[in-house]
C-alpha cells in the first residue's frame, strides 16, 4: 500500500458516498446516469469475485464489500425506490457499445485465460469507459448540479491517483500491470475536459454549464 493508492481509494469511496447521499437526501436521481451506475455495479461484481476465494488484507476485503454494497444500493435507489425521478430521456447512451467491446478485448488481451482473470480484465476495460453515459448525459442536459460535479471530480481523481500509485510501484517494487495502466490512462483522459470545467467553473462557485 502507498499514499497514492490510499488517497485514491479514499477519493473513490468519497465519490460513491457523495452520490449515494445525494440520491438518498434529495430522494431523487435527476441528472444521474443509471446506465453508468449499472456499469459500475457490473465492474465491481466481475472484479471482486475473488472476495470469497483470495484474502489479501482486511482493508481490501472491507473496501470490496463497501463498494459492492454502495453500488447495489445506488442502483436499487435509482431503479426501484426513486424510479419516478430517473431521467430516461437524457440517459440514452447505448451501453452495449461499451460492454461488448470490453468482453471482446478481455478475451483477446489478458494475462491468463482463466475465468476469474478474464472477468477481472473485463472489469478493468469496462471501468475505463463506465463513466461515458454519465458524461454524455451531462453534455445532453448541458449542465450538472454542483454535487454531481463533486462526485465526478472525486471519481476522476481516484484513477488519476492510481496512475501515480502505478508509477510508484514500478519504481519502488519493480512491479507493473500494463492492462490496468493503459485502461487507467484512458479512464483518466476521459475526465480531462470535465476536470477543466470543474476547476474553471465549479471551484469559482459557478454552476457547471457546458457550452451549448
Amino acid at each position: 500500500m502507498n499514499i497514492f493508492r490510499l488517497l485514491g481509494d479514499i477519493s473513490h469511496l468519497l465519490a460513491i458516498i457523495i452520490l449515494l447521499r445525494k440520491i438518498w437526501m434529495s430522494r431523487s436521481c435527476a441528472g444521474i446516469s443509471g446506465k453508468s451506475q449499472l456499469l459500475f455495479g457490473l465492474v465491481y461484481t466481475t472484479r471482486y469475485l475473488d472476495l470469497i476465494t483470495s484474502y489479501i488484507s482486511l482493508y481490501n476485503s472491507v473496501m470490496k464489500v463497501v463498494f459492492l454494497a454502495a453500488s447495489y444500493a445506488t442502483i436499487y435507489l435509482m431503479y426501484v425506490k426513486f424510479k419516478a425521478t430517473y431521467d430516461h430521456n437524457h440517459d440514452t447512451f447505448r451501453i452495449e457499445f461499451l460492454v461488448v467491446p470490453a468482453v471482446a478485448l478481455a478475451l483477446l488481451i489478458n494475462h491468463d485465460f482463466q475465468v476469474v482473470e478474464i472477468l477481472w480484465t473485463f472489469s478493468i476495460y469496462l471501468e475505463s469507459v463506465a463513466i461515458l453515459p454519465q458524461l454524455f448525459m451531462v453534455s445532453k442536459t448541458g449542465e450538472a448540479e454542483s454535487i454531481t460535479s463533486h462526485y465526478l471530480f472525486a471519481l476522476g481523481v481516484y484513477r488519476g491517483l492510481y496512475l501515480l500509485n502505478w508509477i510508484y510501484r514500478f519504481w519502488a517494487e519493480d512491479h507493473y500491470d500494463l492492462i490496468a495502466i493503459v485502461a487507467g490512462v484512458v479512464q483518466t483522459v476521459l475526465y480531462c475536459d470535465f476536470f477543466y470545467l470543474y476547476i474553471t467553473k465549479v471551484l469559482r462557485g459557478k454552476k457547471l454549464q457546458l457550452p451549448a
Partner: peptide
C-alpha cells in the same frame, strides 16, 4: 519487472 497477476488493488 514481473506482470502482476495476484490483483492486490481494488
Amino acid at each position: 519487472a514481473e506482470i502482476n497477476n495476484n490483483h492486490d488493488e481494488l
